[in-house]
């Protein structure tokens, strides 16, 4: 089946020269976009058009373009990663849009994710949280045998669900409080559920929460918006576990 063609789209895109400049919206028209192209391919077409007009192309983040790296971002028509649930922006396709539509594209808005240029934000705040404790210390020894440590299936499954997090930042970007709790919860959970990670669970929860607070993310009020927008459907049950881990660790001190 041949893909339909969207004859004309109006794009309202946030343009910002660099981190220090004040940005603003620019409006562009784009013609004859196939509904089979991905959202990022549509932006590629726009950029080619801008280059041919001797204009600065729109800067946006992307890497794998298959929903596994978490690099693509974008707040599209008021929602993180656009109107579809459980997808990244690179997995969003133009068949979700009507011919003649106006599409508003903004960068993640979150104090802890400052805009670097146009639609690109600096998400190193998430890396800093990970560096604070999102790892298992391995000080010595060889690789242990895969089945040496028995792990119940349901624990392994839960840990895998948390480990699906790709660090895209949609949770903090979509949260009305700019809270990073879903990300931190996923990282704390995936390790706390497994014997290898359990040993450092208390220190990890305290260090990562302290870093998250220090970097200026907001406080979670359990709205559940993060879970709805998370491309990997990480559940807020992990936030309950993070709360548990943190409170347990603090009460032991």
């Amino acid at each position: 089946m041949a893909d339909k063609i969207l004859k004309e789209l109006t794009l309202k895109i946030w343009r910002q020269k660099d981190a220090k400049s004040k940005g603003g919206f620019e409006t562009y028209k784009i013609h004859n976009v196939s509904t089979g192209s991905s959202f990022l391919e549509m932006l590629d077409i726009l950029n080619e058009q801008l280059v041919s007009e001797n204009k600065e192309p729109v800067a946006f983040d992307h890497d794998c373009r298959e929903g596994i790296c978490g690099t693509c971002s974008l707040f599209i028509d008021g929602r993180a990663h656009g109107p579809d649930d459980d997808v990244t922006t690179c997995q969003l396709h133009m068949r979700r849009f009507e011919d003649g539509a106006t599409i508003t594209i903004e960068p993640w808005r979150c104090g802890a994710f400052p805009v670097i240029k146009d639609l690109i934000v600096d998400r190193s705040a998430y890396d800093k949280i990970l560096q604070a404790g999102g790892y298992v210390s391995v000080n010595t020894g060889g690789v242990p045998d895969g089945n040496a440590i028995p792990i119940p299936k349901h624990k392994a499954d839960e840990a895998m669900d948390a480990a699906a997090c790709i660090g895209c930042g949609a949770c903090a970007a979509t949260c009305k409080n700019s809270s990073a709790m879903l990300f931190v919860a996923a990282k704390v959970s995936q390790l706390a559920l497994l014997p290898q990670g359990k040993a450092e669970a208390a220190r990890r929860a305290k260090a990562m929460v302290a870093k998250m607070d220090e970097l200026g993310f907001g406080n979670c009020t359990n709205t559940g918006a993060c879970e709805s927008e998370c491309p990997k459907s990480v559940s807020i049950e992990h936030i309950a576990r993070l709360n548990r881990e943190f409170l347990k660790a603090k009460f032991k001190d």
Binding site: G78, F217, T221
Partner: peptide
């Protein structure tokens, strides 16, 4: 305190925001 901190955690607001699809009204307006 929490509400004030949460407001200042996003110094630049979104121009267009559609939250009705992802969380309950009461949870957003506590």
């Amino acid at each position: 305190i929490l509400t004030l901190q949460n407001r200042s955690a996003r110094p630049i607001k979104y121009a267009l925001r559609n939250q009705s699809g992802n969380c309950e009204w009461s949870s957003r307006n506590m």
